[in-house]
Nucleic acid binder design. Structure first.
Length: 125
RNA sequence: CGAGGAGGAAAAGAUGAUCGCGGUCCGGCGCCGGCGACGGUGAUCGGGUCGAGGAAAGUCCGGGCUCCACAGGGCAGGGUGCUGGCGAAGGCCAGUCGGGGUGACUCGAAGGAAAGUGCCACAGAAAUACAACCGCCCGCGUUCGCGCAGGUAAGGGUGAAAAGGUGCGGUAAAAGCGCACCGGGACUCUGGCGACAGAGGCCGCAUGGUAAACCCCACCUGGUGCAAGGCCGAGCAGGGACCGGCGGCGCCCCUUCGGGGGUGGUCGCAGGGGUGGCCCGCCCCGUCCCGGGUAGCGCCGCGUAGAAGAAUGAUCAUCACCCGAGGGAGGCAACGAACUCGGGGACAGAACCCGGCUUACGACCUCUCUCGGCCG
RNA sequence: CGGCGCGUGGCCAAAUCGGAUAAGGCACCGCACUACGAAUGCGGAAACUGAAGGUUCGAGUCCUUCCGCGCCGA
C-alpha cells in the first residue's frame, strides 16, 4: 500500500460502524470537530493490529453541499498525510462543528496535532 | 473619462511538479470452483483512459420512461388568459395597449363589471339609487328669530371614489340648457391576418370600484413518480394438490383379543435424479404447485462523468488578469504606458434523463446603443 | 423525490369575509406596600407582522418570487 494513499478499507462506510464508534468510543472535543475514538478488535490469527480507519460526518446544519464536501476533503487530506504518525488499530469518527466551514487546510493539520497529543497523554493512564 | 441599457460567447485564470480520489479497460496478487485449460470474484496493487455546472440550485412548468386506471362524451376539481406565429410546456420571437425612466430601454396574471351575486370600514345627507346636510333662488306666511311649499346641484363640507372636466354664454338661482376644447359612446370609412391605430361626421352623454371576491366566457387537463418499477433471495415460518410400489420395525386409534385401520418416523428392495458417449461405480431423493417476502459491501433500471458514507482534492512554483497606492514615458490639454509594493478571483457540487422558467453570481471578451463630465 | 403547513415584541401567542393606532399572558423597567424580599396593586417601554415586489381606496390577511423552520408519504 502506498504510504499516503487512502484506499477504501481505511474508511468507515456503514451506518452500523459509525454508530458503534459513536456509542462506545471516547469523545474528544477539538476546536472545530468532535472526534470519537475507539480501539479496533484484533482478529485471532492477525499478527499485528489492523490499520486505523476514518469516518467523517458533516450534517446539513453545517452548510450547503459545497462547504460540506470541502470539509470532508480537507479532513481526508489531513488524515492521509498524518496517518503514519498515528497508532494503528483505531477507528476515528470526525463530526464537524459549527465553525468548521471557515477552516483551511492548516487548521485541519493543527487539529490532527492536537488530537494525537490528547491520545498520547490519555493513553498512559 | 465616468455611469448605464441590450444581445452573445465563455466560466475552479493558465502551465508545471509532488501526494491523492471515483468509474472503466489491461495486467499482477489474494480468495472460490475445476485434474487442467480456464472461469468467477475482491473494500488489493501497477499502468492506460475518462471524470461537474451555467446555473449541476429552487422544484415553478413540460416531455421521455414507469406502474395503476381507462369505450366515447359530460360534470366536478385544477390550470392558463392582449394579438399573431412556433412549441410538449405557465416558454420563446414579433407586435398592440398601459405603467416607469432625461434616454438607450424596461416592466405588466393586460378576457368579461349593461349575465348574476357579494363587498365598499370610518367619515358623509347620500356609496348604486328615492341624492340634498350647509347653501343659493323664487313664492307665501311671519311674533323679523324664522317657518312652509317648490326650483337647483354652481359653491362649502366628507371620502380612495359623489352622476364627465375647463372656459364662455345663459338664468331668479342653476343645470350639456347652448357653444368651444378635452374626455366618453356607438357608427362609417381607411390601414393592419389580428390586438389595435388614424380620420370623419353623429350622440349632450347618469348609468362607480372590486373578478390576485364568488363567478361568466374561451382553451388546456387521468393519477403516479427511479425509494417509479422489475429481478435474485440465505434463514424462519405458511397454504394447497397428488400418488401414497412392496415388505420389516416403530408410533397412534378401534377391537368380539383372532385382528382391522391409520401413519413419509425409519430400514431394505424397487423407482427417480445427477455425473458420464454407454456399462459398472459413486452421490442425492417423497413429488408437484402457490403466495408473502426480510437480511443482503444484492442485481437491473443507470448513461462515452456517475455513486450509495456518496469521486474530481491538497501543497508549492512560475506566468497572465483585475483593484488600490506610488510612479510618471507620452500628450496643447483632459488623460495616462512601463515599473514597484499591497490585495483579490464569485455563485456554487451531477444522483433517472432531457427541454424551458426562476433565483444566486467576481472578473473578463465581443457587438450595439444612451446619458453625463472634462479637455482641445 | 414528491406533497402539506407555519413564520406577529426577549418567550408563548390573538386578530370573523381585507376595514385598529396590531389584543392578552410570561419576562423586563419604574412607583406603591414592606425592616428587606416574595406576592399583590398601579403605571410604562418594547412589533411595522421572515424579505422584496404586486393587486386594492386600504394588506398581518389576497397574489408572485425568495429566505428560514416543521411535518407527512414512498
Amino acid at each position: 500500500m502506498r504510504p499516503e494513499g487512502f484506499p477504501a478499507f481505511l474508511r468507515l462506510k456503514k451506518r452500523r460502524e459509525f454508530l458503534v464508534v459513536q456509542g462506545q468510543g471516547k469523545k474528544i472535543h477539538l476546536r472545530h470537530f468532535l472526534v470519537f475514538v475507539r480501539r479496533r478488535r484484533r482478529g485471532k490469527d492477525e499478527a499485528e493490529a489492523p490499520p486505523t480507519r476514518l469516518g467523517i460526518t458533516v450534517t446539513r446544519k453545517i452548510g450547503k453541499a459545497v462547504t460540506r464536501n470541502r470539509i470532508k476533503r480537507l479532513v481526508r487530506e489531513g488524515f492521509r498525510r498524518q496517518r503514519r504518525d498515528f497508532a494503528p488499530g483505531l477507528d476515528l469518527v470526525w463530526i464537524a462543528k459549527r465553525g468548521a466551514p471557515a477552516i483551511h487546510y492548516s487548521d485541519v493539520l493543527a487539529e490532527f496535532d492536537a488530537l494525537s497529543l490528547r491520545l498520547r497523554s490519555g493513553g498512559r493512564r
